[in-house]
Design a protein around this nucleic acid. Sequence first.
DNA 1: GCATATTGTGACCAAGTGGTCATAGTATAA
DNA 2: TTATACTATGACCACTTGGTCACAATATGC
Lengths: 214, 214
Amino acid sequence: MHSKENRYSTFNNLAVQKQTLILQAAIAEFSAHGYARASCNRIVQAASISKGSLFQYFGSKEGLYSFICGRFIRKVKDAVKDTASADLSFFALIRGVLLAGTTFIDRYPEYFQIYLKIMFEQDVPGRAEFLTQVRLFSADYFGKVCETAIADGLLRSDISVEMILFSLDGALDKFFLSYAGEGMGGLNLAGLDEKELTQKINELVRVLESGLKH
Amino acid sequence: MHSKENRYSTFNNLAVQKQTLILQAAIAEFSAHGYARASCNRIVQAASISKGSLFQYFGSKEGLYSFICGRFIRKVKDAVKDTASADLSFFALIRGVLLAGTTFIDRYPEYFQIYLKIMFEQDVPGRAEFLTQVRLFSADYFGKVCETAIADGLLRSDISVEMILFSLDGALDKFFLSYAGEGMGGLNLAGLDEKELTQKINELVRVLESGLKH
DNA sequence: GCATATTGTGACCAAGTGGTCATAGTATAA
DNA sequence: TTATACTATGACCACTTGGTCACAATATGC
């Protein structure tokens, strides 16, 4: 085996210290500027490596990006695994997802920024695959949960499953956006302690449960 | 008065035909690429004018953008004026806003794209001013409506006004996004006739009214 | 016709982009 | 020490960006 074993092998054989330095620089750049406007020049400068090295490690800007997205997906899947305890009532599950999302954002704020950027940027390489892997409320996963909840009489049967997913998706998206300080809604979720946060979560879930009408 | 009377005067004195040609080219470019990634070169090419002319008319890329945003704001305000009949019940008003939004998107799809792009792009010149002028559910306008609706016993009093606005905002945003074909939710609102559309609107408002719980 | 404003033009500029490659440096092994 | 494999480098490339400006063309007024 004289030549490259596989993609990224050169990078993976680097000292871990150097690896994390480079990844931190790249993640910071992508989280600040998204894919298209991120600059490889700035990355190599921040990481104190030469441009040639970066392209040797990852082949292209796209290669670097997909490497980082891969890391991101792994982190999300781990977080989901930790959260998913199936034996909860429907709205308790929603509360759990809400809380788990906020802790993820606290732990990996740059990754969440990358996620936001990819959500609202077109023509990002691998966008579709990435989103289907990362989004929680995909029809195939949460759709089943909704169906059983309807069958169990926990959810209204006069609303279509798609509309239920639609409503949940919208509420959760906006909640996380606001928690990350990106929303322009009046709700200021950015600097709340745990108690206030769970209060807000409960209030939102109450709205989802029983609506706004008196 | 020998020199320039004021900003954009040269452009405004152009033949209307030429004006619309240039504006169409610029709007198409900004709606496709947002602000930062839009290319003045492509605009002048599409409009069949020289680069010098474009910068003579608008001074800079930013000037052109703010000119277009001004047009957009006027169109939105006109549309709002046409819609705002105050003597409606609260949720009928919501239904009206939903419907008015979809007709606006039908009439000015490129402008709506520009709106979306500016929503999710940072560092766009004049972003904050633009959004406060265009967003319907600003706390100062719709907040009052909510407060009176609470006072009239139409809305729950155990949910804060901010949370009500938050929920409405999230639902409407997602609805319009999906209608414009940008959402990745299961709801496919893109190619619906009027009957189906009002059905979806009613379903969504029912959820907002009474929630998801059985 | 002539002089004077105004409008139109495109070569040109500095700066930045992703990407390449010949070369130099540094390990490891014989 | 010497040969071999891998890694690091930065000048360089073609290309795009927003923006400028000396000059050409065209209206306008007399």
